[in-house]
């Protein structure tokens, strides 16, 4: 079935490893997914499973050991010409995960937020810059006066929003948002989510949204990929994933979602994922589309079971 949607980003069998060439640590084994233009694609999974590593590979901060990444149909991994490099840097922005260590401590907030506007090829007057900074700050619920302060003078959530303002000000096409709202209270979280959704409507922005808070992911994402130890184990449209999680890791993850209701939360039944439940010695796992748009990693026996679960 040909998909009428336009692919914005294609992550094609990428592998990312760290450490010595001879004894590398493989953080991302063999990951593939496409993100369509104008969609919000969620990436969830265990801490340390490789989510940030994938995000950093997309902004070209982590080199690939294998595979390729394409943006708007053209390769962006590996060496690029200077002009192309500038263009891609402008089009793809990342909101970094850790608000406590991702900001330049010696620069004032105004400069941090405006930094990308100083890039070569950007013609921006001082006055224009000042206005853009003020707008970007108030968009994320901060006071424009904050521009003259230093990062360490802010709370965790305030710093996180400085990181968001910094990415939005450049008007990119694709934003890799790595835990962009983890340090925010629910109301500001709602405000930022509304802002991201409005920008998506206005400018057709596309997001790769990485987060641990699954109620947020469910609300904002069109499709969700679940990753475990460097492998994507399941991918589906959000509602489908929540209604029919197939892979045992997905099931464990969904069962653990905290519920903001004391009685329901205290009666919650946790499912525990034990990776040794898979017997992959002979029957090897394959990435399979078990129903339209719903992919899962499993061997033939497991896939048979998953298909049964869906017909029930």
């Amino acid at each position: 079935m040909a998909d009428p949607r336009e692919k914005m980003l294609e992550v094609d069998h990428i592998r990312v490893q760290f450490g010595k060439k001879r004894h590398p640590f493989v953080a991302v084994r063999d990951v593939s997914f496409d993100i369509y233009k104008g969609e919000t694609f969620g990436l969830v999974g265990e801490s340390g499973s490789g989510k940030t590593t994938i995000g950093r590979a997309i902004i070209r901060a982590n080199p690939l050991a294998a595979g390729e990444i394409r943006f708007e149909g053209q390769r962006i991994s590996g060496r690029l010409s200077a002009a192309r490099d500038r263009q891609v840097t402008r089009d793809i922005q990342m909101i970094f995960q850790d608000p406590m260590s991702s900001l330049n401590e010696r620069a004032k907030v105004g400069y941090i937020v405006a930094e990308g506007l100083y890039a070569p090829g950007r013609h921006c007057s001082e006055e224009e810059r000042r206005q853009k900074v003020a707008k970007a700050l108030s968009d994320v619920g901060l006071l424009p006066e904050f521009a003259s302060r230093f990062p360490h003078e802010f709370s965790g959530g305030q710093r996180q929003r400085i990181g968001i303002a910094r990415a939005l000000i450049l008007e990119p096409k694709l934003i890799v948002a790595d835990e962009p709202i983890s340090a925010l209270d629910v109301s500001i979280r709602a405000q930022v989510l509304n802002l991201l959704a409005a920008l998506q409507k206005e400018r057709g922005l596309t997001y790769l949204f990485i987060a641990h808070d699954l109620s947020v992911v469910r609300f904002i994402c069109d499709r969700i990929a679940v990753i475990h130890k460097g492998d994507i184990v399941e991918l589906a449209e959000s509602e489908q994933l929540f209604a029919h999680p197939l892979h045992p890791y997905t099931q464990a993850l969904l069962s653990a979602i905290p519920q903001p209701d004391p009685i329901a939360e205290r009666q919650k039944k946790l499912l525990v994922y034990d990776p040794s439940c898979h017997d992959y010695r002979v029957d090897k796992p394959v990435w399979t589309e078990v129903e339209p748009g719903h992919f899962v990693l499993g061997n033939q026996r497991e896939l048979e079971g998953y298909r049964k679960m869906l017909t029930r």
Binding site: V186, S187, Q191, L193, N194, V216, F219
Partner: peptide
């Protein structure tokens, strides 16, 4: 009240979440 009304669990997909106005 406002805090408890802003939860994403209460949201309807495609519509803005309730958020407190102002700063």
């Amino acid at each position: 009240w406002a805090l408890l009304s802003s939860l994403p669990q209460l949201g309807v997909k495609g519509q803005p979440l309730y958020a407190i106005q102002g700063t």
